[in-house]
């Protein structure tokens, strides 16, 4: 925790960012997501699927798991839950939202991110530590990473293959909205599931809504994860929240500039 505390030295106790974590029936990774948020220096606020408001949080994490048992399609039922109406409204007004694994599936099903996640090409549930390249470091969730940093975080899913129409993929590439791409050589590296253009994670056009299949919340310290690379996402959003709070009204008008000027503190997760 001392190492982590050093990373959060810019964050004062009085204005500790509050980041919500939603629990649906069947969510698994809300506890780890909340721990990752706390370890990165923010306050984790539990949010319940049946609630209709977001308790005034500064950002929301939609964690992984098997919401509603993956009935119908992974994320399809959760996307219609009462809390998601609040998330969609708030996201459209600029609230940062991160979807991890099932959370990414939910954001796609809710129409907050384009494309869909379908069954892995090899039909297998894949659980392994996965190398990713950070393709865009100007989004709200990736500003702490060095450009083109390669990070190692766990992935575990059966429906993780990202697909979208060619025109959508071109648009994502052209606008720099591919945040993470599968990389690495060797038998258990590279693209694990046939995801189009090796895409592991994407963002909205303004960089505030992001989703990825691998699990940054499981890679926050060397004791329990392969690296602490995952902290970078939770620290990045706090930089943005801090800047946005300081700039208050200007933040809504100049969001594009905010992400670019966010303080680059100690970079979490660059492979040396």
């Amino acid at each position: 925790m001392t190492q982590v505390a050093a990373k959060m030295n810019a964050v004062g106790a009085a204005n500790t960012p509050r980041i919500g974590v939603i629990t649906f029936p069947g969510t698994l990774d809300d506890v780890d997501a909340a721990r990752a948020i706390r370890c990165s220096g923010a306050q984790a606020v539990p949010l319940w699927h049946a609630d209709a408001d977001l308790a005034g949080v500064d950002a929301v994490v939609v964690p992984g798991g098997f919401s509603y048992g993956d009935y119908l399609r992974a994320g399809a039922i959760a996307a219609q839950a009462p809390i998601m109406h609040a998330v969609i409204d708030a996201a459209r007004r600029g609230l940062p939202v991160l979807g991890i694994c099932n959370g990414f599936q939910i954001l796609c099903e809710a129409g907050l991110l384009p494309g869909a996640l379908v069954r892995n090409a090899g039909l297998r549930f894949i659980c392994r530590d996965q190398w990713l390249r950070v393709e865009n470091t100007s989004s709200v969730w990736t500003s702490r990473f060095e450009p083109a940093a390669e990070i190692l975080i766990p992935m575990k899913n059966a429906e993780g293959r990202y697909v979208a129409a060619e025109s959508v993929l071109d648009e994502l590439e052209g606008e720099g909205r591919v945040l993470f791409r599968y990389v690495g050589d060797g038998p258990a590296q590279g693209n694990p599931n046939g995801a189009l253009r090796d895409i592991a994670g994407i963002s909205s056009a303004d960089g505030k809504i992001a989703g990825l299949m691998p699990h940054p919340e499981h890679a926050i310290d060397a004791l329990t994860g392969p690296t602490d690379d995952g902290l970078g996402l939770f620290l990045s959003v706090q930089d943005w929240i801090g800047t946005a709070t300081a700039a208050t009204i200007a933040a809504t008008a100049g969001t594009a500039a905010t992400a670019g000027t966010a303080a680059r503190g100690p970079t979490a997760g660059a492979r040396g």
Partner: peptide, 8 residues
């Protein structure tokens, strides 16, 4: 809107 996902 629910039974099918028009993307896929």
């Amino acid at each position: 809107h629910l039974l099918a996902n028009p993307v896929i």
